[in-house]
Amino acid sequence: MAIKLEISEEKEVYRSSYFPEYVRPKIYDPGLDETIKRLTPEKIEKAYQAVFGKETARIKAIVETCIHCGLCAEACQWYLSNDRDPTYAPVAKVKMTAWELMKRKGKVDAGLVYDIARIVFTECNICHRCSLYCPFGLDITFIIGLVRRFCFLLGVVPQRMFDQNQTFMATANQVWMSQSDYIDTLFWREEEGMYELKNLRIPMDKEGVEVVWFPLAAEPKTGPYHIDRIAKIFQVAGVDWTMVTMNDYWDSSNMPMFIRDFFTMQRIVKGLYENAARLRAKKLVLTE
């Protein structure tokens, strides 16, 4: 993967109208810059009511227990890497997103939605390291997830993430791979691997096996060598294993989870689960 440094050094600066200290390089992303033009105050309030309207005990417990001690800041790699800029601290991310929304009861304009979407989608990895260092063990990433859900309901999501979500809706994998392409790739890898290991087999839809292995969709698409490596390891170890090709649910990556599209997310998980249960597997091994 080649990255050009020249295009990445942004000269223009984005300044938030809500938070004077939030200054970032300007990065054009159609998913954020174009979609905020469609927003109306009614739409924003409706999405706010859907996500934060009930004010459940879990949200309240997290928001009201936090004492702003800032221990989470030292845990965040964004904060440490950006010369300890306080706007990158997890507590600041929550303050600028969920607290701001709850303080204003969802009556905000599109400018704030842009800031919020930028913070929750591009400055937090939901890695849970901050919760590990919180003296109360508050689940900060749960709040970030809720705000992601709020942004998803408004459609303000970075373009590539939304695009991948729609790919999942249409094909149940992230790379537009059809069933016939998938089966063809597995046959091809079996043929290639035979030169290195005698009688290499990639079993498909075998029942009563020890292991069902679900790849990442990028493996048959861009890294097919992973498939014959796994096949070689399993063959040498004498594992009775199989891959699933009988329907579209074989991709173990779940991108809808990241933007909190619960419907597509549960479709994927249910599909994988039912496939493994139908083959009566003892173990379900997802890819690395």
Partner: peptide, 21 residues
């Protein structure tokens, strides 16, 4: 974290932002 979690791995426009972070 590797800084590609939470869906950032797919955001091509933000790669340098991600690496700086």
């Amino acid at each position: 974290c590797c800084n590609a979690g939470g869906g950032l791995s797919s955001l091509v426009q933000w790669y340098s932002h991600e690496a700086r972070g």
